[in-house]
Write a protein that binds this DNA or RNA. Structure first.
Lengths: 247, 247
DNA sequence: ATGGAAATGTGATGCTTCGCACATTTTTTT
DNA sequence: AAAAAAATGTGCGAAGCATCACATTTCCAT
């Protein structure tokens, strides 16, 4: 699975520029970009199609570029020396990842492994090209700073939860967080990406057995349910109550 | 402890501009800034003096500005509902903090509490002023992106360690990390900031008793020592060996 | 539609780590 | 320099969670 394959034309979907522009508008950091600036980025961007389970980049592999999620979902994971895995972050439509390799002097390597959680398309932009873009279009740099601010903020909260809470509380909190982030409608709070309990456990930083036990309880209380590998939050109110009380 | 006091002139040290410029060069993101750009930032920046233990900002307080560490050291902490604390990050000379509030649409609040670990001086810059600066000086925006990249990278590693490792491994790894970050010389690896075992435990995300037990072992083996609230790493090689072997 | 693979549920067991207690040491204050 | 406050070291018991085991269910490819 050589990362070089991105550069191979056979993997690149050729898409008309105008269409791509519309797609790019869905990426958070390009949203407000002027058309002129956009044109130059479009020229350099590649569209890549991935299947569920495919790996996009590997931790500690040399960082070549940055990715934007057009459709589907991606998990970013890190491993320790024993092969235990944790999901550091999950990305969906509009998100950017591998942005931590931009301008980095300390390390040229990707900090995490990226894997598709469901089929989807990504945009790929060479690191150097994006860096040029950031130099030339202040508006773009600002958007990137905004995006990174949010990422940092989110990650500090995750860190607190992982470090301080017990398995039950972490599970409930993760459910709430994912329910808010990955739902489609505003009235329902289902988690619209396929996530096995095994994977969910790596979000929480615990074992699948522990999560399974917590899920069993929550199912009994009618708070959540699972259908075809998707978690359904039946009662968000009750879920939040659990979190705030000392259960 | 009203944060408004930053705006009170009595707290502001008036420093000659030229002198400040020299100081600002020590802040990572200002390092390569042109003199012209620098002048405008200097006009807006305030110098604040703090004593060890003083709090600079509070988690969930309305975010007004960004801070730069000129001297001393700062810890950034978050709490859970039970009052348990974790040190999310530590900042020293040249670092920026509260940068996660820049351009943020999702939240206007500081994500963490900042406390001085030792006496020192900080620069304070109004959020809006810095945002203006980032718009006007692309070079500055680039530096900020670089800085945030590094922060993100560091934080994902921390998250992995906190989630996956046991107390012993986490302690050893934190020692190594802090030894690398907070030493002054290149030959010695002492941690040049006062850190009690109690505080160290909140870096690792565990209890002071657990850290105390690990430290006892490491002291017996002649790997570390403590002198007047500072951790001394006597044998960095041995420390790294511990980490890589399955101990 | 079906067989094989992957994921799940749940009990039993034991290891880690927490939390408490309290004696002791170190630091800070007056 | 003495007193007060804060931090530390360590034993012990309890709680929480990981690990193992294995039956069962669900999913996916053919």
């Amino acid at each position: 699975m050589n990362p070089i394959h991105f550069l191979d034309d056979s993997y690149v979907d050729k898409i008309v520029d105008i269409q791509t522009a519309d797609f790019l508008r869905k990426i958070v950091i390009f949203k407000d970009l002027s058309n002129a600036s956009m044109q130059l980025i479009i020229k350099r961007i590649q569209t890549l199609t991935f299947k569920k389970g495919e790996k996009i980049i590997y931790e500690d592999e040399k960082a070549k570029g940055v990715f934007f999620v057009h459709s589907g979902a991606v998990k970013l994971t890190k491993e320790d020396e024993n092969g235990n895995e944790i999901i550091v972050c999950m990305k969906q439509k509009g998100d950017v990842f591998a942005e931590a390799c931009l301008f980095s002097k300390t390390s040229e390597l990707y900090p995490a492994t990226a894997t598709m959680l469901q089929d989807g398309q990504l945009f790929y932009l060479d690191k150097v090209e994006l860096e040029k873009g950031l130099h030339e279009y202040p508006e773009l740099a600002i958007q990137m700073i905004r995006y990174m601010s949010d990422s940092l903020r989110e990650m500090t909260s995750t860190l607190r939860d992982v470090a301080l809470l017990d398995v039950y509380a972490k599970t409930v909190k993760s459910l709430e967080r994912l329910g808010n982030k990955f739902n489609t409608s505003t009235t329902r709070w289902n988690i619209e990406i396929p996530l096995t309990i095994q994977e969910f456990a790596t979000v929480v930083g615990t074992t699948r057995e522990s999560v399974s036990r917590v899920f069993s309880k929550l199912k009994k209380e009618g708070i959540i349910d699972m259908k075809s590998r998707k978690i359904i939050i039946l009662d968000m109110c009750k879920l939040c109550t659990l979190m705030n009380s000392a259960y």
